[in-house]
Computed example of a mutant assay.
Amino acid sequence: MSTLKETKPAVRAAGAANTRAARPAGRKSRLTRQQSRAGWLLLAPALLHSTFFLAVPALAAIFLSFTNYDFSGAWQMIGTENYVELFQDARFQAAFRNTILYTVVVVPLSMVLALIIALGLNQKIRGLGFFRTVYYLPVVTATVAVASVWLWIYHPSAGLANAVGSLFGLTRSEWLNDPATALPALMAVGIWQGLGAKMIVYLAALQGVSNELLEAANLDGANRWQVFRNVIWPALGPAHYFVLITAIVQTFQVFDLVFVMTKGGPVNSTTVLTFDIYNNAFEGLRLGYASAETVIMLILVAAFIYLGGRSQRKNQDAQ
């Protein structure tokens, strides 16, 4: 009996303790649900925008790519005829090659140059704010205005490029009229215009590098290259990934420069996928055909992003 009397208060005490332990867990669960609802509420505008302006048009393009729709209102399903015709189209093949070449050249070069500039502007130098503004100015300048200025720079007789080249004994070049130089000339403009945005991202990442790690490396006798390789470079991993993905998307979207400066010429040497899609859809009035080309471009962008992200993750794992 005495044992039973002693056991009952102990059981009640244990039950009370379990109740008190359950109450915080219940409050935590309710708090988590409230936070989840608040998070979805905050995400709702972005999700609605992505749904109506990205997902729905993408699905519509996939559907239209299997039709012969031409803005007339009448259309019919034609299966994969648009895709078969695309890969037999010489202009599409040229646009496909030019887009890949433009991306492969512009993305890595612009990233390297932007990082070098960011490293320079991360130092304590006079006129730092002025230089940061100058490098970022092309980003906020209208692409049409940028293209107009570079049209003058590349002008065969009165352009700055040939004038500077003549000082070094170089012959005058028909920059935008020569198939051999037209696409590289556009690449140079694309690299120059995109440097500012990439530089700002790298500069922000550099300013977030731990001062303690830098001081420890200096105390250990590391030189500048060793500090950069072992301390700064690993800390820039997220910035590299962000700059890489945004640069890939931007290069595939190049249109204004081509439209204003070359119209895809000469001899389709600067025709890219976006410009060819525009021509097929709004000049040739073949929306189904242009939609098939859009689907191929989306697949190509996804492949580049996947490969870029995979290479970036491998670099981070190796470090």
Rank of each mutant, 00 (worst) to 15 (best):
G308M: 12
L273V: 06
R37T: 13
F275D: 04
K314Y: 11
T270A: 10
W175G: 01
A247P: 03
A188P: 06
G221L: 15
T262A: 13
F66R: 01
F255N: 12
Y278M: 05
R97T: 07
T181S: 15
P9A: 02
R224D: 03
L213K: 12
T171I: 00
G264H: 14
I299Y: 04
S210L: 07
V140E: 05
N268C: 04
V146K: 09
A17Y: 03
T99D: 05
A163C: 01
T99A: 08
L48V: 13
L307N: 00
N218V: 14
F87A: 02
S311G: 14
T67M: 03
Y136L: 15
L186N: 10
N280K: 08
L48R: 02
G284F: 04
K124W: 13
L119S: 07
V272E: 06
L109C: 13
A235V: 07
T19S: 02
A303Y: 06
V149F: 11
Q319R: 15
L214I: 15
A61K: 04
F53L: 02
F255P: 12
A21L: 12
I125P: 04
L4S: 08
A95L: 02
V149R: 13
G165R: 05
V149M: 10
M111V: 08
A17V: 05
R224Q: 02
L219S: 12
Q207K: 14
L213G: 09
Y83R: 05
I62E: 08
W150C: 05
L236V: 06
N223Y: 10
R229F: 10
F259M: 14
N82L: 04
Y202C: 09
S291Y: 01
E283M: 13
V260P: 06
L195T: 11
A158P: 00
G26A: 10
T51I: 13
L195K: 04
V249T: 14
G79K: 04
Q76W: 00
N230M: 12
G309I: 01
S65P: 07
I100Q: 05
F255M: 09
A38W: 11
G120S: 03
G308R: 09
L298F: 14
L287R: 00
V258K: 03
Q88C: 01
A281H: 12
A290F: 03
F259W: 11
F282D: 00
A61D: 07
R91P: 01
A145G: 06
M187T: 10
D317I: 07
I191D: 02
L307A: 07
T251L: 09
T251H: 07
A58W: 10
F242K: 10
